[in-house]
Computed example of a mutant assay.
Amino acid sequence: MKGDKLTTVLWFDGDAEEAARFYADTFPDSAVGEIFRAPADFPSGKKGDALTVAFTVLGRSFSGLNGGDMFKPNESVSFMVVTEDQAETDRYWNAIVANAGAESACGWCKDRWGFNWQITPRTLLESQQAGGDEARRAFEAMMTMGKIDVAAIDAARRGD
């Protein structure tokens, strides 16, 4: 993270290091970086606890801050991961949901820490860029889904 001009900071309730390790294990071009351990006790932790954790996800810089339980993530912020096929879509969706996450609608899921993810196949984005009836059909198909079904989106795009 040295030299980065912009880092997104995510607020955790004591488990930023665990989250960073999960993200690094789940997504390519991801890693856990420097962990700053508290030099003294603080309101939501003890001396030696991880206070901040630097990490990257898909090449983007983040810092996890163990700030306590006063702030919770919500759906107003999400992470969109663009996937190339069903296998990649399944891999990310299943990893997040199986790790005490939760399924939602239209390609959205929530990880165990409350952060929202949009696991979005490229074909869905391309359908919306195409516009017209193709976009409408793909959108209507997406509205019936939890995890996105790539074959169903492709069929809707074609009008099958």
Results as ranks from 00 to 15, higher is better:
36 F>A: 11
62 F>I: 11
116 N>S: 14
159 G>K: 06
128 Q>F: 13
18 E>G: 03
148 I>S: 09
93 W>D: 03
59 G>N: 08
91 R>C: 05
34 E>I: 00
47 K>E: 15
108 W>V: 04
121 P>G: 11
126 E>L: 13
14 G>K: 06
51 L>V: 06
20 A>M: 03
6 L>Q: 09
147 K>Y: 10
141 A>I: 00
144 T>V: 05
98 A>S: 15
26 T>R: 05
126 E>H: 06
94 N>V: 02
110 K>M: 12
102 A>N: 11
69 D>Y: 00
23 Y>K: 05
160 D>W: 00
125 L>W: 00
7 T>W: 00
74 N>S: 14
12 F>E: 03
33 G>K: 08
30 S>T: 08
109 C>A: 10
21 R>V: 01
132 G>D: 10
65 L>W: 10
15 D>E: 13
56 T>W: 03
160 D>P: 00
159 G>Y: 06
38 A>T: 02
6 L>M: 14
129 Q>M: 15
134 E>D: 03
142 M>Y: 00
48 G>E: 08
54 A>W: 00
158 R>F: 01
129 Q>R: 13
72 K>P: 12
100 A>N: 15
158 R>N: 09
148 I>K: 02
42 F>D: 08
132 G>R: 09
44 S>G: 10
144 T>S: 14
31 A>P: 12
41 D>S: 12
157 R>C: 13
25 D>W: 03
82 V>L: 07
133 D>M: 13
154 D>Q: 15
111 D>C: 06
156 A>W: 03
76 S>D: 07
57 V>M: 15
5 K>Y: 05
90 D>V: 04
87 A>F: 01
45 G>D: 10
159 G>Q: 05
156 A>F: 01
89 T>Q: 11
73 P>F: 04
64 G>K: 11
115 F>K: 05
15 D>T: 11
26 T>H: 07
73 P>K: 03
88 E>R: 07
141 A>W: 02
98 A>E: 15
112 R>G: 07
95 A>F: 01
149 D>Y: 04
54 A>T: 07
117 W>K: 03
58 L>W: 01
86 Q>M: 04
141 A>E: 15
82 V>M: 11
56 T>K: 14
74 N>T: 06
109 C>N: 04
49 D>A: 07
9 V>H: 06
22 F>Y: 03
102 A>I: 00
11 W>F: 13
82 V>R: 10
16 A>Q: 09
103 E>N: 11
61 S>Y: 02
8 T>I: 15
8 T>W: 01
3 G>L: 03
90 D>P: 05
141 A>S: 14
